[in-house]
């Protein structure tokens, strides 16, 4: 299941979706807004997404996961809009019979999400300036910044 939401992610409800009597492992991951990045003090983040492409790309990621790993269920939800410090920006949940496959699938989903979903992040700094993450003119080795 994939979703984009402009409201706080309801983690407990999502965990319920993952319940399965065949599952011996339930791995959940929350990407959370932290108060600093690259030495700058961060006040908030805003996310923008292009939903039709994000939905299609998420389904492609799920298809890859089903092919590569032995899991039972997976869930991916991403916030859009303005987020405050400590709010969850993304939730990944995987249920599997065994933990190895659950860990691997969870890692695959979050990594591919960061690289492929059309979601953009703007950092709002304490000095009132803002910047779109990864969109600076120069490519630097810190260009894979993240909220988590």
């Amino acid at each position: 299941m994939f979703d984009l939401t402009d409201r706080p992610i309801e983690i407990e409800k999502l965990k319920e979706l993952l319940r399965d009597d065949r599952a011996g492992a339930l791995i959940t991951f929350e990407g959370v807004v932290r108060n600093h990045n690259q030495g700058k003090s961060v006040e908030a983040l805003s996310y923008e997404a292009y939903e039709p492409l994000a939905r299609a790309e998420a389904q492609r990621i799920f298809a890859e996961v089903a092919e590569r790993f032995q899991i039972l269920k997976c869930v991916l939800v991403h916030r859009v809009g303005l987020l405050q410090i400590s709010e969850a920006a993304v939730f990944v949940g995987v249920a599997a019979a065994h933990r190895d496959q659950a860990y691997l699938a969870s890692r695959y989903i979050i990594d591919e999400t960061k690289h492929r979903l059309p979601i953009w992040k703007k950092e709002h700094y304490s000095d009132s300036s803002t910047a779109w993450v990864n969109c600076q003119h120069e490519v630097t080795h810190d260009s894979v910044q993240c909220a988590n």
Partner: peptide, 26 residues
């Protein structure tokens, strides 16, 4: 539409082109 395509693809009349700057989900 809902699929990434090659930048060298021919530009089709009446198509919708989605420009995707570097993404930063998560």
């Amino acid at each position: 539409k809902d699929e990434f395509v090659d930048f060298d693809s021919p530009l089709e009349d009446q198509s919708e082109i989605i420009l995707v700057p570097p993404v930063a989900g998560g």
